[in-house]
Design a protein around this nucleic acid. Sequence first.
DNA 1: TATACATATGAACACATGCTCATATACAAA
DNA 2: TTTGTATATGAGCATGTGTTCATATGTATA
Lengths: 124, 124
Amino acid sequence: MKELTVNRNEQCACRCIHQERVDAAKDHALPARENEQLAALFKAMGDPNRLRILWALDREEMCVCDLAQFIGITESAVSHQLRQLRQLFLVANRREGPILYYRLNDSHVSALIHLALEHLREEP
Amino acid sequence: MKELTVNRNEQCACRCIHQERVDAAKDHALPARENEQLAALFKAMGDPNRLRILWALDREEMCVCDLAQFIGITESAVSHQLRQLRQLFLVANRREGPILYYRLNDSHVSALIHLALEHLREEP
DNA sequence: TATACATATGAACACATGCTCATATACAAA
DNA sequence: TTTGTATATGAGCATGTGTTCATATGTATA
């Protein structure tokens, strides 16, 4: 937090126009922790390769090397990305022998992607 | 694109298990351009301060210095973030004298946030 | 056990990002 | 025009991020 206008002494540091709006916004703000989690969720979906992974898994489950070949990056890179997605509960996996099959973890992820696509397709 | 197993000569460079899944994923993949735009949209929503801005504007329109005081960063920082959000059509503004009032640009943004919140609140 | 394969992990590096500061632009009133 | 206010923009910097490479872990088969 930083003061905004401190050129002369004894001047009000707040040059905000609508204090009541600021107060109302603070009252209705998301709890800090929830805000961070929500941002982390969107950020996770905000990388082109991670989004490709999610989009592909929305159709059918795939293993790491499938995804690597699909996207055109190393399996290591895919594995790193999948870890992020796992930690945020965006994807889950099941083991079948040595192979891990990844899938979307819940229907919200798919719904988020399709809703965002609607937004895109309405703009010029 | 990189070959994955090239230890011995004459070996197949593809060690992917399910070629048919890879092909199907490629068939159904989003066009590259749309994928980039979609990722950019989520990325824009994936920063804690930008998300605070969007959350606040979902209630009522606010000007730059309101937002700056609400969040606790400089007006310059808010302005930089608003530019990003503007360029992606997440927010719009209207001028009233010297003051610019910002608002959410369409209802999808609000819907996206609330849908994502549902996802959050279902996980442990 | 030994070998092969699928995946995970850690280190390192190039690049992107968000902030502040300084400065520019835009509008309104004197 | 001049002054004041609201916002925008560019530069610079510290931090974060995504990738690859090297290596470790885990599982099945010989």
